[in-house]
């Protein structure tokens, strides 16, 4: 398996791409508007497709090419457009008022998590022979930022976006750790995500119609 370092052109593209994916996770964490969430998530997925395409190009792996295409179509275009249609147009969701922490504070915590990810997944701790060692800590940071987004947001849809960002981080880590990951597993995860998003959107719209409220604190009341 060929390894990508910062010395080659695909390696540089992959590194830059991973940093941009991390920045879009930060952008999502630092914004308050629902259409921004969706735009940043879409941009992140497009960047993820570029990363998958780069790895596929180096490894000459048709399965990864297909995955990159699916990511671009489904996560880059499909989910953001469908969610925008449902949430922003039909349900008129604009500003996310349910923040558990201030934006500046969550950005600082995000920066700390980022540093933590670099420490625990640094190059010394990783096995040799991976596709791109530099991207692993970046993808770990994206996973942590997605989790942080879920923690500091109270609105169900915003938490869903955080979960999707986490999934993007896992996907990025998977393609750079083992490009020979079985195709059927990755594709299965991808379709899982799509199904989950569809169910979630349907539930959220149903809840919004019945209760007029989609904050998770209200939903907790339903369980009791």
């Amino acid at each position: 398996m060929q390894s990508l370092s910062a010395a080659s052109v695909p390696g540089v593209i992959l590194d830059l791409d991973a940093v941009l994916i991390l920045l879009s996770a930060f952008a999502c964490l630092g914004s308050k508007l629902f259409d921004r969430y969706l735009a940043y998530y879409g941009a992140q997925s497009v960047l993820l497709a570029v990363a998958a395409g780069t790895v596929a190009f180096v490894q000459h792996s048709p399965a990864l090419w297909i995955l990159a295409g699916l990511t671009l179509l489904l996560k880059g275009l499909g989910i953001p457009l469908a969610a925008r249609h449902l949430l922003v147009r039909r349900l008129q969701l604009k500003r996310d008022a349910g923040l558990a922490a201030g934006l500046s504070f969550s950005l600082i915590v995000g920066a700390a998590l980022c540093t933590f990810a670099y420490l625990v997944a640094g190059q010394r701790t990783l096995a040799v022979g991976l596709v791109a060692t530099a991207v692993v800590p970046l993808s770990t940071a994206v996973v942590l930022l997605g989790a942080l987004t879920m923690v500091v947001r109270r609105h169900a849809v915003a938490q869903l976006i955080g979960w999707l960002i986490m999934e993007n981080g896992v996907f990025l880590g998977a393609i750079v750790l083992t490009a020979s990951f079985p195709f059927i597993v990755e594709a299965g995860i991808l379709f899982d995500v799509i199904a989950a998003v569809l169910i979630m959107l349907a539930m959220v719209s149903g809840l919004a119609q019945q209760l007029g409220e989609t904050g998770t604190s209200e939903m907790r009341g339903l369980a009791e």
């Binding site: 920045l23 930060f26 980022c114 540093t115 670099y118 640094g122 190059q123 530099a134 970046l138």
Partner: peptide, 14 residues
């Protein structure tokens, strides 16, 4: 934040 990520990234990517 941009500058901080830039610095930490330099340790990861070299």
């Amino acid at each position: 934040l941009l500058a901080l990520i830039g610095i930490v990234t330099s340790y990861v990517i070299g």
